[in-house]
Simulated assay, not measured.
Amino acid sequence: MSKIKNIDSLMKYLRDRHNIAISGGHQKRRLRNIGYYHGYKGYRFINTPSRKIAYTDFNQVLAINSFDLDLKSIFYPHIMFIETALKNYVLEVTLQHSNTENFNEIFDKCLTYYKTFATGSDEYKKALKKRLGLREKIYNTLTRDYTNNRQVVQHFYHKDESVPIWAIFEVISLGEFGNFVSCSNINIKKNISTSLNLNQSCDANGKLTESIIYIIKDLRNSIAHNDVVFDTRFKSSNPNGSLLACLRLDTQITNINFHTIIDYLILVIYLLKNFHVTKTELNKVVNKFEILINNFRTLVPISIYNQIFHTDTRNKLNLLKSFIST
């Protein structure tokens, strides 16, 4: 595009350059509502720009856009619930080990995973750097939130008190929370893992909890920023092998790799079940997802659907229902 185009020019561009049928006032309004750049350009490929979707009609673009929004609405409340629950479980174990709410004391007593390694080794330096970076990030977050009049921070500073760990958990990002768990000593990691009822045969190094947090973090942030989620392009790293083994053993579902969104559904259901959410509620989540993808399949060519959902999707859903019922 060599120059700025108005909405009519963008419609003509879609017809002439991309061979997508689009016309009329209704589709013009829909294009304006979803936006050419956020809407069409955001949904014109699957996972990577090289995997272009062969659209022939603008209604197909709208179907994927609506499907993506509906996916976010299914995941959002449960991701928020999981984030809160994870922080509460970690907080409880941390307080048991530290016997204090003071972050500086917790930093000295509990965030000592770097001591696992030989002093001066590459692993030692990497772990210590992560620990120091976490402290700096937390202090920066508290400064920012005080400046922005966040009450949970201002309350303690105005009383000339340090911000307690539970309040820090309220304001740090999920990624930094994952770093907190990562920096915790091995005894704390193992206690957290046990409290979450994670498969201990898959967690010899105690890293299963942080792996879960990092995976959830990517999905949570994409939903919060209204980014595209249907093709898991938000995934920032490959999942830990221990996490894949844990899910496979506990759910009896194979081929979990987080290349498709259904694998994130499996993880969410797994965690919700560990948090003792009822079978009725879990089945509601899975049924909503199943209805959504079944409807989506009727709105796009099967060639597009099969690029998003693999042939084992139906089997994974059935096994997930079986896992819920156990």
Rank of each mutant, 00 (worst) to 15 (best):
S2Q: 08
K3L: 05
I7C: 04
D8M: 01
S9K: 14
L10Y: 10
M11A: 08
A21W: 07
S23Q: 10
G24Y: 13
H26S: 12
H26C: 08
G35T: 09
F45P: 02
N47P: 02
T48W: 04
T48K: 15
A54Y: 07
D70S: 15
L71D: 07
K72Y: 03
K72S: 07
Y76H: 13
H78P: 04
I79D: 00
M80V: 09
F81S: 11
I82H: 11
I82M: 12
N88H: 05
Y89A: 05
Y89C: 04
E101R: 05
N102I: 13
F107C: 07
L111K: 11
F117W: 07
T119P: 08
G120T: 10
K125R: 15
L132T: 10
L132C: 02
L132P: 00
G133L: 04
G133W: 06
L134G: 04
T141A: 03
R144A: 09
Q154G: 00
H155P: 00
I165A: 05
E170P: 01
G175W: 08
G175N: 13
G178F: 03
F180H: 13
K189S: 05
A204N: 07
L208S: 06
T209Y: 01
E210K: 12
I212T: 02
I212S: 11
D218W: 01
R220M: 12
S222F: 12
I223M: 02
V229F: 01
F230R: 06
L249I: 01
D250R: 03
N255C: 04
H259C: 06
T260E: 14
V268E: 11
L271Q: 05
K279Q: 15
T280P: 01
T280V: 08
L282F: 06
E290S: 14
I291Y: 11
L292P: 08
L292H: 13
I293V: 12
T298R: 13
L299P: 00
I304R: 01
I304E: 09
N306D: 14
D312N: 15
T313I: 09
R314F: 05
N318M: 11
I324R: 10
T326Q: 13
